[in-house]
Design a binder for these strands. Structure first.
Lengths: 178, 178
DNA sequence: ATAAAAAGAGTGACCCCTCGCTTTACTTGA
DNA sequence: TCAAGTAAAGCGAGGGGTCACTCTTTTTAT
């Protein structure tokens, strides 16, 4: 299609990223071939390389939208609302698996580490805002433990296969409310 | 060398696993080729395949000895001693990176998931033993949060690059001692 | 009509593993 | 005591196959 709308281009790009994310979550980055992404997206090899110049670029795109969902852009929400958000995410086993892949790759790739680090920093800042007044002195420390707990719970879920976030949420509340 | 001692065979096997673990930690499983392991170990290609039938088998061997170090075989130690142990481990960035790789692979490979699951279960049981009498009712829940925190801290360290376990240890103490 | 977009067979590099050969430690018979 | 024999351990080049990426051709929206 020549001279298509920007909306069309955006949709195609998202179509590729969605397909890649699904495969990355279930099989990992390395075990996902470009052929897999081609098949999952329903597009062709050549079409994908029109939107991304390499597989690595697709990995970056997936990571950029992959970790933001956990603790981000929620400064106006209440603590309870955020916990519900975490609970829902925690039930999403595919998302947990994806996060596991992202952390592992970031541990090895400096480029990805920068991206993940930025998103974690934003998450910590948002959480620190949620800490009650009387504990504000320890806000940074609490945010640290909070993000750590979120991240690790994803790992746990991904490995265990079952999802029971109740004790997790209880632990979070204990940390936040003291 | 034919008819060598069992100690020799064990040493060779360990030599291979050590070489593989070093590479796996710094480059990840997929980005480590057999040629890398050959070079790092100082042995030859053929020699390695005399001890392991496949690269996957080496991965399994590394995982089996890779996660056990975190919370295991410490039932007789005091809480303080265990926390010191965690603190030392937490400073070992390579170990943190390795754990990230192991979790990611376990999230995708059922075979590895079984191994990691067993080791986590053993860790939880050991931690539950350390919980003070008055909080025994919540021992399971605490152990859950504890292991989660340990695991995630490894991820965090691997991604951030710097290592400052103080707030982490403080959070652990808060959970255990209430 | 035209130019962008999609298609998909092709390409070269890389990687895991095998296989035939060499080296070495131990045994044995005189 | 020792030389010949034996079998395990070590070696490394090559085969078979996969993968990321390219390039030419075809399609299609404007």
């Amino acid at each position: 299609m020549p001279r298509v709308s920007q909306a069309h281009l955006d949709a195609r790009r998202l179509q590729i990223v969605d397909a890649a994310r699904a495969r990355f979550a279930s099989h990992g980055f390395a075990r996902t071939s470009m052929a897999d992404i081609v098949a999952e997206s329903g597009l062709s090899n050549g079409a994908i390389y029109r939107y991304f110049t390499s597989k690595d670029e697709i990995v970056v795109a997936v990571c950029e939208q992959g970790t933001e969902a956990l603790p981000n852009a929620l400064t106006t929400e209440a603590v309870a609302g955020f916990l519900e958000h975490v609970r829902v995410r925690a039930r999403d086993t595919d998302h947990a698996r994806l996060v596991a892949q992202i952390y592992a790759e970031a541990a090895v790739s400096p480029q990805l580490a920068v991206i993940v680090r930025q998103q974690l920093a934003a998450g910590r800042a948002a959480i620190a805002e949620l800490v009650p007044e009387r504990r504000r002195a320890h806000a940074g420390q609490i945010a640290e433990a909070f993000v750590a707990l979120c991240a690790s719970y994803s790992q746990q879920i991904a490995i265990r296969g079952d999802v029971e976030p109740a004790p997790f949420v209880a632990a979070l509340m204990a940390i936040i409310e003291g």
